[in-house]
Design a protein around this nucleic acid. Structure first.
Lengths: 349, 349
DNA sequence: GTTTGGCACTCCCGGCCCGCGAGTGCCAGT
DNA sequence: ACTGGCACTCGCGGGCCGGGAGTGCCAAAC
């Protein structure tokens, strides 16, 4: 199969590829099947419509395009889009104005929440599609600071700040009452052990905390330990922001029946993580086209996603739309935004 | 006009009202215009279809129902729904199983964020509609505690906790470096002044803070003051949670063209606030039907909303759907959930 | 005078047919 | 290998029609 595809591509001369590009570009622009005449005219290939027809029947044979019905033009298949993305699409960089807008808009962000909110809006506006941004994964962050605040009685609040700027906060109640000094002591102890440690190691470290507390504080520390573990482990990556769902409505005809299930999926963090997460190892940017998404409801959907983070990848962001989307433009937008957000995180570190 | 309507209602005998109820109920159930025969048969009125026809033509004259076209059945108008809601709909309380589910699901919430998230999901599931929940308004809350945390260098974090459990957090940078003791001093000062004060008074109090700080800390306090004001005033009510947007897709036919603009509106906090906020003064529960919403995009939409809070109202929650919705069921659900959430907030106070 | 059965009328809906046009595949000629 | 020509296919929109649901009105009955 793999060898077969290779031969297909190799056997195709440049003009056939050019025809495929023309079909993809026109179809994306007009949303209508594109015929041989259109291709021959609009894209100065220097050949007649008949020649284009021959190429098209070849491309159809090879599985890159297909006809919705006998007397219609051609539409790219998922395989066709794939080839286009891999070898034909020349990524068009954002315009200077767009770049400036991105920088200005993101530079105004005051904290991580704000960065994420602005990012997701920006992506959806740039691409006119649904945008999804995952908050920096706790698994890949380190603790910058832990704070323990008394709320009166036995009620406490634990605030954890990571090096990516993420703030997790959690209220709980202890079975014993602690003095302000006790709290300070516990806070100091926890901070000494956890500060600058990556969260993946936290589970281990937290386990050892109880042993280090003064005997009087052991009960409290044990309870605190449970809350810590809960905060760190039990809700690992779950935060995700979505924007631009209204753009789905623009493609109503396209999504037809699946609109509802897609919207349902957008409210499920697990599903979103799946869509974003399965990045090709190492690749900076991933495009998953139609069938390549395992989920049934997304068979007519493409996802363009990129990792971001200061130095290493701490989260993913992406854009979701119909398979017939403007790949070069979307790829450029996602890449540019991911890069710039990474820069911001780098600076704030 | 008002007098006119009064007379209309008064002039209608019970059977005419019964016919209107039958039309509303059937139309909501079937989504299809309902004819005289159906009404006469399904709802044991003890009269013939012809009689029902007379009543219907009266109801149409009075503006409670109308025909989409000459040879079709009748559909309630907004005015018809209004009368139904005000005088005809017998609110059917939730089933015991539903009530248990509500209690169980909400009781598990661990903090305010969790309460809101669970509430909005619950509402959308109970009603099969879009649910919207406003976080407790800062304007109507009091400060329970303020915390000032050093993040190293000159970077600080301000955490504010209100009596409704809402936690606002904000990072910022001072122009001067403070010692741990300085920070504690400032924190103490701020807490003394603000704890248990309603946030509406905060602006005034904050203004006086700088004067009370030691001269060495004046600069820092001035800067801090600005951050405080920003946190308290500049982002007053803005947090809103939405769930069940996928339910809009179920009513695709109904919303037709406006689907997109409705979805856009759902991403705009300002619009959502408008929809929820304009509560009739004092009323525990508000139903706004079709035209009664000022926004054009919501002419075919009804909103059922209720205030909630411990004792006094601190926020609103509601459900949004097509005008042809199950009002009795929706009203019951919104009311039950709002009450129970209020109870929870009361307990946590 | 309220209710009822009867009846003519209206008009939507779905099915059907048909002509147009876009697009194709094939072939013979360059 | 490319091209022009040509017959063919088939979706789409428009027009037509018959069935059916629902109405409004009227005259008779209670």
């Amino acid at each position: 199969m793999k060898a077969n595809e290779r031969r297909d591509v190799a056997a195709m001369d440049d003009r056939k590829l050019e025809v495929l590009r023309a079909i993809v570009e026109d179809y994306v622009a007009t949303q209508e099947p594109v015929g041989s005449k259109t291709v021959a005219q609009r894209h100065a290939l220097g050949v007649s419509a008949a020649t284009v027809r021959n190429d098209m029947s070849y491309l159809e044979e090879a599985g890159y395009i297909h006809q919705p019905h006998t007397s219609a033009g051609r539409i790219p298949t998922d395989k066709g889009y794939r080839l286009f993305v891999d070898r034909l699409g020349k990524i068009k960089p954002l315009s200077a104005a767009e770049r400036r807008a991105v920088h200005r808009f993101l530079a105004e962000a005051i904290d991580l929440d704000d960065v994420v909110t602005r990012t997701v809006r920006l992506l959806s506006q740039l691409t006119h599609q649904v945008a999804v941004v995952q908050y920096p994964s706790l698994n890949r962050s380190s603790v910058r600071h832990l704070e323990l605040v008394s709320l009166g009685h036995r009620r406490l609040m634990l605030v954890m700040i990571t090096d990516t700027g993420r703030v997790e906060q959690r209220q709980f109640e202890l079975s014993v009452e602690l003095s302000e000094d006790d709290i300070l002591e516990l806070r100091k102890l926890i901070n000494e052990q956890l500060t600058d440690k990556p969260l993946v190691d936290a589970t281990r470290i937290i386990g050892g905390l109880v042993a280090q507390a003064r005997p009087e504080l052991e009960t409290a520390m044990a309870e605190l330990t449970r809350v810590l573990l809960d905060t760190v482990v039990a809700r690992p990556d779950e935060r995700i922001a979505v924007a631009g769902a209204a753009n789905l409505a623009r493609h109503q005809a396209y999504f037809a029946g699946s609109l509802r299930s897609i919207m349902e999926a957008l409210e499920e963090e697990v599903v979103l993580m799946q869509l974003l997460g399965r990045t090709d190892s190492g690749a900076l940017l991933t495009v998953r086209i139609g069938d390549e998404n395992e989920l049934d409801d997304f068979r007519e959907t493409s996802v363009v996603s990129a990792g971001y983070g200061p130095g290493s990848v701490v989260g993913h962001m992406g854009v979701l739309g119909p398979t017939r989307m403007d790949y070069p433009g979307t790829i450029a937008a996602v890449r540019a935004v991911a890069r710039y957000v990474s820069e911001i995180l780098e600076q704030n570190r």
